[in-house]
């Protein structure tokens, strides 16, 4: 093997990060305020609450749902969600007989405009390695047991196409308004590792 950084004394990664920022700021190459704004945007504005609005609208508006399944990117942009990692979004509809689940075996490709930055488990080597090989077993370990007759569809999103799952609307939500429905929708359901639970 070639020499890795592991062979030398390993500097703490937080210190390494501070060192790089200090060099780039000193030379005027990055502005810490720009970085702050960038970080804040992904902590506060871009996250699964965006995707939840898309899902809730699709549940109450059949015409919107048809547009969403036909042309995901433009239908999602109708609600104002677009940007990096969202150039072309395909929406996959869960049905009683078909279950979709999304992964990225090569890195952590994820539809940022609708789901934000990926959670730790999505980036975990165990998730990346196993979802394309034993999805039923892995989903079961993650708390989702699928019946034997369900058609399991795994999507390895390794190009610039991004996939988002449209979960099934849970029973007992007929009287809920769109905003109340959005509050039920979780990130995990929009990746396909969970279902949307009925209101408790």
């Amino acid at each position: 093997m070639t020499v890795s950084d592991t062979d030398a004394e390993r500097l703490p990664i937080a210190l390494r990060t501070e060192a790089l920022e200090s060099i780039l700021v000193e030379r005027g190459l990055v502005d810490p305020k720009v970085m702050d704004g960038f970080i804040k945007n992904y902590e506060e504005n871009v996250g699964p609450m965006n995707g939840a609005k898309v899902v809730a609208k699709a549940w109450v508006d059949p015409e919107y749902k048809a547009r969403l399944l036909a042309e995901g990117t433009s239908a999602i942009a109708e609600l104002g969600f677009k940007g990096p990692q969202g150039e072309h979004i395909v929406v996959l509809e869960q049905t009683p007989g078909t279950h979709h689940v999304v992964c990225c075996t090569l890195c952590s490709c994820y539809p940022w405009p609708v789901l934000g930055l990926p959670p730790a488990w999505y980036k975990d080597p165990a998730y990346r390695s196993r979802m394309v090989r034993e999805p039923r077993k892995l989903l079961s370990e993650m708390g989702l047991d699928l019946a034997d007759d369900v058609d399991v569809q795994v999507w390895d999103s390794v190009s610039e196409v991004r996939d988002m799952v449209l979960p099934e609307r849970p029973a007992g939500t007929e009287d809920l308004a769109e905003e109340e429905l959005a509050a039920l929708v979780t990130r995990d359901a929009m990746v396909g590792v969970a279902k949307v639970a009925p209101p408790s």
């Binding site: 970080i39 992904y42 080597p125 165990a126 390695s129």
Partner: peptide, 29 residues
């Protein structure tokens, strides 16, 4: 990594788990 074995199990994180857990992660991102 697709199909590699022996990485173990996956634990789901809470729905409100933040994207970053440490300040340096924000800066590195």
């Amino acid at each position: 990594m697709g199909g590699m074995q022996n990485f173990g199990s996956v634990s789901l994180t809470p729905p409100d788990d933040p994207p970053f857990h440490e300040e340096w992660e924000r800066r590195a991102f």
